[in-house]
Design a protein around this nucleic acid. Structure first.
Lengths: 339, 339
DNA sequence: TTGTATGCGTTATCAC
DNA sequence: GTGATAACGCATACAA
């Protein structure tokens, strides 16, 4: 429990000034090799490591970013957070993670905490379309970048997202071209609040319209928790035998639907096709092989991080607005109705 | 992009000294109400928020903990991290999260980073039994607490874990009492390196022995990735039709086995019983209903956090060593062989 | 090439 | 009750 030595302790032991210690620490050019060695030896002997807090204070830079995620139990957030964590580590940034969907705190409060911690930037992975923010997102002292979803009416915001509307349409187009006409859709309650879910639902409806298929609200369900999506699927199959496909607005929901269906001895994709959205890791599992729309998780995560750092360093200037093209990943849970 | 005001700006506006500003910030008793108001108003007007970095430097306390997790894509880590994040937030602590299984950095390096950041404590959720550590875990300047798994020969370490050996035996006992004699076991390659996997395997073997059942290495498999566990299960069912149960060392593996089996038109639990370990969220899904051993995720996570904070504050003293009792959760994937 | 002095934005220790 | 002033552990402008 001995206290950590500081740069003065090192200086004393090496017989130089603290400034010189700082110089070798920061690889300054004009330090005599012999002096450098003395300092290095003293550092070694004392096991000295510079205090990053003190360093942050004087440099006005913490090399830390904030990452505000949604429900970590949701594979999408966990998997993207993992990528961001690893990329940040490679680039010598630490990340303070916080829950943006917490019941205890509003997003504004979470953001404030991060700003008071003097993080160098923030990635916000979950935000409502009309979030009430006390923090000025656009004109903040540090860059804030939305990831995965953004806000309405915020033309100057930084974001890295995928085109959810388009992704949804691509999924529907694929199903429709494969002969599906009666396609059920499962979203979540409160979908209107989030750009992602709102756009995906819009895509569903527009695709129907574009193909001259009437919208039937009986085929649409708002899941409020996991069980309800399952119950809906079960009921649907019994009451609407003409339904040949179910489009779930997230892979997580699709997985539940798959479970339910397999438990009811229905065959996927022979009897019914299932389409997901996100392409979480397990979707690619050879025994799940869920057809889905890729959010380009890895790419999106890396882009979010590198662009945030570019904003921090000043290499890029606001607004950074990147919209990735969604990609259809055809695997084994969808099939043409024509056999 | 205006710079943030500091306490001197507030002081000037309020017509007091910066010390007084600090006093109202920290709720000091002897400040005249009128003075307090002046300061409060100035704070409000300027939107002043104290700089936590500066505060940390002088107080020698960052109100930040480090959390070193394993693969976040693994639901166990994501779900426990979520609990820790939320608990920490309630208690006004921030958490810097890092990947302990990263290929780029050793655990020692990750720990060092955290120590240099002056976190007040660290929770280590993944460590090898014989990890080579350059950081002195026991006599560190800040408390370090192992979570989920610990190291060998470290009698003085702080930890919060469950009794994996016992959990495994309970699972086996249950299967055996239900008539299962030929029980396959799936672990992971390199299981010997981790206390959790090592102990669980030990439990499997000891339970066999305790019940006079011969150990058959044909029934044991070391999965090196997801697909291999599936392939093993498939082969197993064909080459060893007498196997009536599969005990997977983690729920994640059990889920894959379930998938594989259902794809092969075998019935769970009628034709084969599946036992997991961990009790991750999805295990409780009504259409998965995996029988498993509970790691008491939520409880373990909360205990880890509260005990770490108690160590930090000095309320507790090292070593904190908590071993939770594992709990059998019987759901729908296991059944007696007697019908 | 090295050292002195100063400051980063707070809290803490004294005075008054 | 309030205000100077000195830390906290570094980096940096300026001197030498």
């Amino acid at each position: 429990m001995s206290q950590r030595p500081n740069a003065y302790d090192v200086a004393k032991l090496a017989g130089v000034s603290q400034t010189t210690v700082s110089r070798v620490l920061n690889d300054f050019p004009y330090v005599r090799p012999a002096t450098r060695m003395k300092v290095l030896n003293a550092i070694e002997e004392l096991g000295f490591k510079p205090d990053e807090i003190a360093r942050s204070l004087v440099k006005k830079k913490t090399n830390t970013i904030g990452l505000i995620v949604g429900n970590l139990a949701n594979p999408f957030y966990a998997e993207t957070a993992q990528v961001i964590l690893n990329e940040a580590s490679k680039l010598n940034y630490d990340v303070i993670m916080m829950d943006g969907d917490s019941k205890n705190e509003s997003l504004s409060e979470v953001l404030s905490k991060l700003l008071n911690r003097r993080v160098d930037g923030v990635i916000v992975a979950t935000v409502k379309r009309r979030e009430e923010l006390t923090v000025n997102i656009v004109d903040s002292t540090i860059p804030i970048l939305f990831f995965n979803r953004s806000m309405d009416n915020l033309e100057q915001a930084n974001y890295v997202i995928v085109d959810d509307l388009k992704g949804s349409k691509i999924a529907m187009q694929y199903l429709i071209e494969n002969g599906h006409k009666s396609i059920a859709y499962i979203t979540i309650t409160g979908y209107q609040e989030y750009s992602t879910f709102n756009d995906r639902f819009l895509g569903y409806k527009q695709a129907l319209q574009d193909n001259g298929i009437a919208y039937n609200e009986e085929l649409v369900f708002e899941a409020n928790n996991h069980n309800s999506a399952l119950d809906f699927s079960m009921n649907l199959l019994q009451t609407n035998p003409n339904v040949t496909a179910i489009f779930a607005s997230t892979d997580s929901i699709a997985l539940e639907v798959l479970e339910a269906i397999s438990r009811c001895n229905k065959k996927v994709p022979e009897e019914i096709s299932i389409m997901g959205f996100d392409d979480i890791n397990i979707a690619g599992n050879p025994y799940v092989k869920l057809t889905t729309i890729s959010q380009r998780k890895e790419e999106m995560s890396k882009l979010a991080l590198t662009n945030l750092l570019a904003l921090i360093s000043g290499e890029s200037s606001s607004p950074v607005q990147i919209v990735l093209e969604p990609k259809l990943i055809v695997r084994g849970t969808t099939k043409s109705t024509k056999g």
